[in-house]
């Protein structure tokens, strides 16, 4: 079968899978981004027990394979089926897509929290002081100086994290989610057509390239203030 033929039969399925990959990644990263700023603040300024708890959580996430985390949630929840049914949560855990998103959120949130913590620590202390000196409340200082800076500093690392999550999302296929990887495996197992793997690889690379481009565009905007020459 020629490449063109193979592509035209596989592409619709692969694109459908790619859409799921994007949704998985986007949902995971975005939900994690909702929690990470608060957690980063606790990690830095919270009470000691909360700090220790967060450190343990981050260390656990970083020290275990994502696949093991995914199995722990997806298959592990089966052990508590009765309890989860009682709570009305069983239908959530039964769905591999939900479990994958949940695990990605838990996972990415740990990494994002660490990245943001680094960003917050790198905010110039003098600028924080200047904000306090004009009488800003703590919440204002956070919103107007600390986080705007921290996100600018952390931006490239956060982008990396999203790419890593996108790649890791391929593991969802192992618990039968039909993302790009899932569709690829499905096509291969039916047709033994090896080229489908390369088509998938090309799509993953394409997603990465487009994402990196967009992320850089935003970064350029965010770091306008660091260029010495006046742009109009």
């Amino acid at each position: 079968m020629s490449l063109i033929e193979s592509l035209s039969t596989n592409l619709p399925k692969l694109l459908d899978g790619a859409e799921t990959t994007l949704i998985l990644t986007g949902l995971g990263a975005a939900l994690a981004a909702v929690f990470s700023p608060g957690l980063a603040l606790i990690r830095l300024f919270g009470p000691t027990p909360a700090k220790m708890l967060l450190r343990a959580y981050i260390s656990f996430v970083r020290g275990t394979p994502l696949l093991a985390q995914l199995f722990l949630v997806f298959y592990g929840s089966g052990q508590f089926r009765a309890e989860l049914t009682g709570l009305g949560l069983w239908s959530f855990f039964r769905d591999p897509f939900n479990c994958a998103v949940l695990v990605f959120v838990i996972n990415s949130c740990a990494y994002q929290t660490e990245i943001l913590r680094g960003g917050i620590e790198a905010v110039p202390p003098g600028e924080i002081e200047a904000a306090r000196a004009i009488g800003m409340t703590r919440a204002r200082v956070l919103a107007r100086v600390i986080f705007p800076h921290a996100y600018r500093i952390a931006w490239p690392a956060l982008g990396n994290e999203v790419i890593l999550l996108m790649k890791a999302s391929a593991l969802a296929s192992i618990v039968t989610v039909f993302d790009l990887m899932g569709r690829t495996r499905q096509i291969f197992s039916r047709s033994f057509e090896f080229s489908v793997y390369f088509e998938a690889a090309a799509l993953y690379l394409l997603i990465t390239v487009v994402f990196v481009f967009l992320w850089r565009q935003i970064e350029r905007r965010l770091t306008r203030h660091m260029r010495r020459t006046q742009g109009s």
């Binding site: 110039p124 003098g126 600028e127 002081e129 200047a130 904000a131 306090r132 000196a133 004009i134 009488g135 800003m136 409340t137 703590r138 107007r144 100086v145 705007p148 800076h149 600018r152 203030h225 660091m226």
Partner: peptide, 26 residues
Amino acid sequence: DQRQIERLRRHLGMVFQQFNLWTHRT
């Protein structure tokens, strides 16, 4: 009282040795 301190600061301007302008704003 943190609020009282914030109120006090609104009456006092401060100019720092290192300027401490917010670099991400014009």
